[in-house]
Each structure stands twice: as structure tokens, then as C-alpha cells.
């Protein structure tokens, strides 16, 4: 019997123009558009995801938020109830890392009062780096290494929405990290509902 798979909320945060929408679109459509313009407000996108070993399936619900300052007051609504936050910064623009730190602080504050959100730090636009000679070098944004050392619970990925690098890996990591009891609880509750429904139908049937 195929039951609907559980929903799993992910919120994407970060400064404007770091490539949040490009990352989501790469993941959902496997395409890249150089010409994307800024998101207004936020977009809510759903996509089914299966783990590589096919043992788990979830219905990802992704909040793609606007990075602009003027939308800041709305953001708490997006990360409320989210299980994972992808906090993005542009590997070529160190100042965007400061903004990422700001969001991480906000999420930690939220974690104290609400359920735990798992934080991923995502460096974007890794394709933009090419050294004149030799193989491409990934830039190091000052402070990132120290930050990761001090926050061992936060995973770090380098991605490129253009080449696709790292994007599949993030979402596979997310699904692999979900504890089995999350699925057990979901399917248990569904079974209860089915049983209830059957009972209900049994009574109302004429």
C-alpha cells in the first residue's frame, strides 16, 4: 500500500543575490538561468525526494525567501516549523558571510524557544573561481573556517547552481540525516487515520 510520504520543511536564507533561488531551481528543475532577478516576498515550493538507497521518501517543502532587508520582518514565519535551514553566502563576496552569521544567530535564538532547526552553511557560486594556471581553486572566505571549528554541528557545502556541484549532495544529506522514528511516527499516524476512516465509512455506508 502506498501512503503519502511525510512532509519536511526546509527554509533557505541568506543575503540578496547570493543565489538562493538559483539553488532551488537547480534542485527542482535541474536547470540554471543566469538572468534570474530578485525574489519578492517568498516562494513555497514542493518537491518529492527519494534517498539514493531508495529507503526513504519525503515531500520537501522549501521556502525560498527574499534576501532583501525590506522583507526581514517576514522571515520568522518561514523558519517556524522548518526542520532544516540552508543559510547561503556567496563564496566571492565575503560580506555575504556576515549576513549568513546574522541568520544563524537568529535561528539559534529561535532554537531556544522552538523545536530544533538543523543548520547548513552553503557557499554558493563555486564555479566562478578559476585560477589563471592550474586547477580551479575554491576561495576561502575569512572567518568561515574558524566559525565551523566553533560550531561543529553545522555542516558546510560548496555549491554551484550553474554546474550543479554540491546541490544533490545537500539534499541527500538532509534525507539521510532524518532519523527513522520520524518516518515511523508519520506512517503510524496515517495508519490510525486509515483505520478511523474505515470505521467511519463502515458506519455511514448504507
Amino acid at each position: 500500500m502506498s501512503l503519502p510520504c511525510p512532509s519536511f520543511k526546509v527554509v533557505i536564507l541568506g543575503d540578496s543575490s547570493v543565489g538562493k533561488t538559483s539553488l532551488v531551481h537547480r534542485f527542482t528543475t535541474s536547470e540554471f538561468d543566469n538572468q534570474l532577478s530578485s525574489t519578492i516576498g517568498a516562494a513555497f515550493i514542493t518537491k518529492e525526494l527519494e534517498s539514493s538507497d531508495k529507503s526513504k521518501r519525503i515531500n520537501l517543502e522549501i521556502w525560498d525567501t527574499a534576501g532583501q532587508e525590506r522583507y526581514k520582518s517576514l522571515t520568522p514565519m518561514y523558519y517556524r516549523n522548518s526542520k532544516v535551514a540552508l543559510v547561503c553566502y556567496d563564496l566571492h563576496n565575503p560580506s555575504t558571510f556576515d549576513k549568513a552569521l546574522y541568520w544563524i544567530d537568529q535561528l539559534k535564538l529561535n532554537n531556544e524557544t522552538n523545536s530544533e532547526i538543523k543548520i547548513y552553511l552553503i557557499g554558493t557560486k563555486s564555479d566562478l573561481v578559476t585560477s589563471a594556471t592550474g586547477p580551479p581553486v575554491t576561495p576561502t572566505v575569512p572567518g568561515v573556517a574558524d566559525f565551523l571549528e566553533m560550531n561543529s554541528g553545522i555542516k558546510h557545502f560548496h555549491t554551484s547552481a550553474k554546474s550543479g556541484e554540491g546541490i544533490h549532495d545537500i539534499f541527500q544529506d538532509i534525507i539521510n540525516d532524518i532519523p527513522p522514528d520520524f518516518f515511523e511516527r508519520h506512517y503510524e499516524s496515517l495508519k490510525d487515520k486509515v483505520v478511523l476512516n474505515r470505521q467511519f465509512q463502515g458506519k455511514s455506508c448504507c
Binding site: 531551481h25 527542482t28 528543475t29 536547470e31 538561468d33 519578492i40 516576498g41 517568498a42 516562494a43 513555497f44 515550493i45 514542493t46 518537491k47 517576514l74
Partner: peptide, 10 residues
């Protein structure tokens, strides 16, 4: 591209 899969909140 795939506007039907997105819900906007503006």
C-alpha cells in the same frame, strides 16, 4: 519556469 509548482507569499 515552472510557476505552477510554486505558491507565492508577497
Amino acid at each position: 519556469k515552472d510557476i505552477e509548482t510554486e505558491d507565492l507569499w508577497i
